[in-house]
Structures are given as structure tokens and as C-alpha cells.
Write a protein that binds this DNA or RNA. Structure first.
Lengths: 218, 218
DNA sequence: GGCCATAGTGAACATTTGTTCACCTCAGCG
DNA sequence: CGCTGAGGTGAACAAATGTTCACTATGGCC
């Protein structure tokens, strides 16, 4: 609660402007751009920047263009964010790069995703149907999968069944591996070598349904 | 799979270097920085940048420092990413800004989170215990909450009970609102006006447990 | 062989951008 | 009253950075 209190309102304005510029332009503003945004000259801006730096909200490298960096308690905790392509389903065996066909982009930091490196072979699927409800995965959830990883007993995997990506649990039973649906209504147990495993689930994201739109179960 | 194929290996190198620099430094590299990284002169770099721009992988504003921007199918789908402070629990009634006490940072795009604007009043909690298993929220999950929003019937909310943040379902029954635990073992029904509601759950993130840490079967 | 794209080098040049110096106003404070 | 800090203006300067011109070399292609 100190964080914001130490700042004057004008300084907060500057900080927010920098942040806004970074978000919209992808790079920090220059001093003159800030000046234009605040309708003041460059020296007014310099004064603010110095104050903000002294107070520990900013950091920048001398003599480097657009090197302003915000420092906030959050920023120091911030991890690397990866952009994961979201597919409706995956028709064939996931060639190396089909980002073009993504129908969405899920950006999450790797810490939260639980993957060590931004290895390119990560993608996301929107879950359709309640077949994995036993694993507490609901219809509408987004699952993030890693392709090419060896599944282990109990992992949830996406497999290509009848031309559709389907979620199953990977189980090992007396030396053989099977895929199992987590829904009593589909008690199949399919030998896993008969199928192509497209990826192993490493994370899940669920959006609370917008209370305005209806519910699915009666 | 076309995306990458159109590039020479050297061009791919350039692209990756730009991306790496953006991630690590927070800003695009300059031409000379790229040159240093690739161990070539500035004109070699310029050639590559032109080629990459012509092929549609890059964009940049003339005469602007560090204005390189990657263009990929994913980038065009990319949404605004917000940094959400992750708390173990929230002792008191969420004053305006307590980012300093965050024990982690969850960065997710707003589209996936399902919030319209990056209103500052968003925070995350790590779920402890299975009290919400009826809503398919597990121990270890991270829930993202919006503070100050009016809960609706069926929403999951965090409430301060005995000095601890606890997840409950908000229900309305004959004109009165209650909080209900989604676990048959805790069938409490608490009138909601007796408690402080800290936030309404708008999203959930689950990390698949790291198979390497716990179970390992021979 | 001529043509074109890739992949460079080297040097000059122009613009952007950060930095600094001098000076001003205003509110609060002892 | 003089002092300090916030918040400015204006101009000049220097470093960083993008741009361009000239030229070389290689490999594929018709």
C-alpha cells in the first residue's frame, strides 16, 4: 500500500503513460514521446523520470534509446510469457508449425504453465464435452499440451480418434499402455499403440462462465 | 508449416535473436546490437531485416529506435497480457494495492481470463484443500478473482473466514444470499452479509502435477 | 553468361533520442 | 524570509541509432 502512496499524481500519470505505451506499441516511449503525451517539454519529463528512478519505480540504461523499464513488486516476480496457439482440434499429426491455423492465442507465463522452457511444441485445445469430468476437466476449459513428451501413467493426453482430438487418461496396466476416458459413460480402454498421441496435458485454464449466458447441465 | 519454410536458416537466426532480445531486455534490439549478436556488420543485418520485412515477418517504423516488431500468425491473435499478483491468502479486506506482498505473479492474457479490462482489482489465490471439489476446483489450483464485482448466484467467491481466505459458492435462496462450501463434508450455509467477500472467481489455472516429483514407478 | 536473392564489408550521413545547463513558478515549511 | 522539492520552459549538445551508397562474393536458375 506504500507503493502508490509515495507518488504524486503527476508521477503516477507518467508511470501509467509509460505502461500504456509499452502495451500498445511494444516498446517504451522516448522522453519526447512522453512529453507529447503529457503536453510538457522534455525537461519536465526528465524531472519526473529522475524522481521515479530515485523512488525505485523505474530503471533505465544511460544513453540507450527506449530503455525505460518499470519496476514494481510484480515485475520482479514476472516470468517469461509464452504465446500458445489455440486450436479447435488438430486434424493430423501436428507438423512442426501450424500457428497460422490457430483460432486463438493463449498467453501465459511458463511458471504458471509448469513447463521449464518455451519449447515450441506447446499448443492448446478447447475441451469439448465432459469426457474428462473424472479428472475435473470441464467442457469449455482450455487445456495446454506439450507435444512430443512421453506420457506417464495418469497423465491426460490428447489422441487422434476418428479424425478428432480427444482427451484421454494414459494408463499403464501390466506392462501395456492404454487410453481411458474419464467418464463412466465411455468406459473404453484403448491400447495406446493403436493411436497417435498428440500431446500431454501440462496445464488447464478455465474461464468462469459469464453468468449471463446459460448453463450447460440441467 | 509454411511459416518457417520460407526463411533461410540465417534469417531464422535473426528472428530468434530479436525475439530473445525482446524477452530478456524488454525492448527490441538495435541494428548494431543485432550485428554484434550475429557477428556481422550493420549492413548484413539491414539486408536480413529487409528480407524479413518483405516476407512479412517483421514490421518497423522508419527512423524509430528499436521499433522492430515481430509479426506472426500468433502475434496478430495476441491479446493484452495482465500481471496478476498471487497471494497465499489475504489477511484483511484487500486495500487498493498490496502487490508488494504477492508471493508470485501470474501473467495471462485478458481474453483467456475473461475480464474485459485490466482493472487493477484482480488477484489470484492458490487453492488449499478440496472444499470446492464440487465445482471441480482442486487443491493446488490457482484461482483468479476480481475484487469489487457483485457476485451472482452460482459464482464462486473468496470470503474472509477466521482470518483466512476461503472459497465458497455464492447462492441466493428466497431473496437472501448465502455462502456454501462445495463439499459434502462441510455443508455450511453462511449468510453472506456476515462475511467480507474479497473477490469473485473469474478464471482458474491448473498445472498438471510434475510427474517427476512424486510418483515414479519402476 | 546474365540475372537475381542471399549474405556480407566499410564508410558516410541524417535523424532520433538522451543529457545537460540555465532559469522560472509555486506551495509548503521553519 | 530563504530554503526545498515538484513541475516546468528553452536551447544546445552528444551519443545512439536508422539509412543509404558503393562494392564483393556465392549459388541457383533460365
Amino acid at each position: 500500500m506504500f507503493t502508490m502512496a509515495e507518488l504524486t499524481s503527476r508521477q503516477r500519470e507518467v508511470l501509467e503513460l509509460i505502461q500504456a505505451h509499452q502495451q500498445s506499441e511494444g516498446a517504451s516511449p522516448t522522453i519526447r514521446e512522453l512529453g507529447a503525451g503529457l503536453k510538457i517539454g522534455i525537461n519536465g519529463v526528465v524531472g519526473h523520470l529522475r524522481a521515479l528512478e530515485r523512488k525505485g519505480f523505474l530503471e533505465y540504461r544511460p544513453n540507450r534509446a527506449r530503455s525505460l523499464r518499470l519496476i514494481s513488486p510484480l515485475h520482479s516476480l514476472r516470468k517469461h510469457v509464452v504465446d500458445v496457439p489455440l486450436f479447435g482440434s488438430i486434424p493430423a499429426g501436428v507438423p512442426d508449425n501450424r500457428d497460422q491455423e490457430a483460432e486463438g492465442c493463449v498467453s501465459v507465463d511458463i511458471e504458471t504453465l509448469g513447463i521449464p522452457k518455451p519449447s515450441a511444441r506447446v499448443f492448446a485445445l478447447r475441451v469439448n464435452g465432459d469426457s474428462m469430468i473424472g479428472k475435473h476437466i470441464l467442457s469449455g476449459d482450455i487445456v495446454v499440451l506439450e507435444h512430443g513428451r512421453e506420457p506417464r501413467h495418469g497423465d491426460v493426453v490428447a489422441a487422434l480418434i476418428d479424425g478428432e482430438s480427444t482427451l484421454k487418461t494414459y494408463v499403464v496396466k501390466s506392462g501395456k499402455s492404454y487410453l481411458k476416458a474419464e467418464n463412466p459413460r465411455y468406459p473404453d480402454l484403448i491400447p495406446s499403440d493403436e493411436l497417435v498421441i498428440q500431446g500431454v496435458v501440462c496445464a488447464l485454464v478455465r474461464k468462469a462462465k459469464d453468468s449471463k449466458s446459460g448453463e450447460r447441465r440441467s
